[in-house]
Design a protein around this nucleic acid. Structure first.
Lengths: 220, 220
DNA sequence: ACCTGAACACCGTTCAAGT
DNA sequence: ACCTGAACACCGTTCAAGT
């Protein structure tokens, strides 16, 4: 039983390595098989076709996400720190995961994981939000809001959505108020580059500001 | 000149139709060519290979996004309504676009558009945020925050990330406090289904609450 | 039980050939 | 100038055959 899992794990290792080194398009049944020293057909009992292989990759990423968070929180000794700190650590771990595996990370949006393990991780997140004082009836929604933003930010970064929007890769007439009035008004701000680490921290601060203050003054 | 664009447009029409009807995997050079009555090779001068075809699809989606917003704001006559209303209309248009083209929509995260037209759309967004009172130095960041969330939410919906997390597609022991303590605490909330329209509206309300109140009490 | 290799039906793209 | 069709180097997967 654990032997089968072991064989599967070795295939997923190989697939993730190829994705990291050569991109997702290079993750071919044949290429993965060659790396583990088998024929392409020998993978089918292990991972169940290409779809199963990619689903397995998402499982691996989720497992690594949790291990990143554990090592991080252990190092700064916030294992049982304030709930918001643990949420922040998780949010930062998402981004680090994306930087470690930029090609494979794009699968996270496309191939939702429904393994018991992923439900356990969701349960941990729900627990943190409850501890942080989010009213129970809002917890699932706030979880989706935060995870959607964190996944989206990391995906935008590694897929180039953010850098592509950088106006310094000049479109003609960018500072012409007649063509791009808002860009012209913001030219000072736009000229300086973006510190993505800082931007992410600011975004998280804003979102947690929301969580902290949304349910204090007014109820619901 | 416009004749070349016209030919290109016809190819992109066909590609989008196939994506809508049969999914993104069915968008094949051969299939698209067949739909416009040409050989596969005749597409190359028009769109420049498969990559160019997919980039063109993203352009189409962005154009449709703006047309959705225009018709919506026109109907509710908020064309020159309050800036926040226009931002809300745009955010809702993103989601409607995803529902119209669920398969092609996933390209939005993967293939950022850098055409002059997309910069014009970004400029419009910047303008709305300035009008809404966001301090200039925060406008690009808030734009990224909002667009990342809106894209991420719509992608999660159409790609099944949200529905896959639905606990009612039962994992064993979901209500066992020993296994999933947070799920057990939230069982009342989780049992009732989610109204996605309502959830999105609440999320937008929260985010605009943030925009409205973040820069009033404390100056950053 | 587990693995292999030939084969099938595809895919994007090159290229020589047609008009 | 614009299009075609054969061909090339792939791809995921089926299946009969080996041990």
């Amino acid at each position: 039983v654990t032997e089968v899992d072991d064989k599967r794990a070795r295939v997923l290792d190989a697939a993730l390595e190829i994705a990291d080194e050569q991109g997702l398009a290079a993750v071919t049944m044949r290429a993965v098989a060659a790396r583990v020293g088998l024929s392409a057909m020998a993978l089918y009992p292990r991972v169940g076709g290409k779809e199963g292989l990619l689903d397995g990759l998402v499982e691996r990423l989720l497992a690594e996400l949790m291990s990143i968070m554990d090592t991080k929180t252990a190092r700064t000794s916030t294992v049982d720190g304030k709930p918001v700190d643990r949420l922040m650590a998780l949010a930062r771990a998402v981004r680090e995961l994306a930087r470690r595996h930029p090609a494979a990370f794009s699968l996270m949006f496309a191939r939702p994981s429904t393994t018991p393990e992923s439900v356990r991780q969701l349960d941990t997140l729900y627990g943190m939000l409850l501890d942080a004082g989010v009213p129970p009836e809002h917890v699932p929604r706030i979880e989706r809001l935060l995870s959607t933003f964190a996944l989206g930010f990391a995906t935008s970064e590694v897929a180039g959505r953010f850098s592509a929007a950088d106006p310094r890769r000049a479109v003609r007439g960018l500072n012409d108020p007649a063509v791009f009035p808002a860009h012209a008004k913001l030219s000072d701000v736009l000229e300086q580059g973006v510190d993505w680490d800082k931007e992410y921290e600011q975004d998280l601060a804003d979102l947690f500001f929301l969580i902290r203050h949304r349910w204090t003054a007014d109820k619901d």
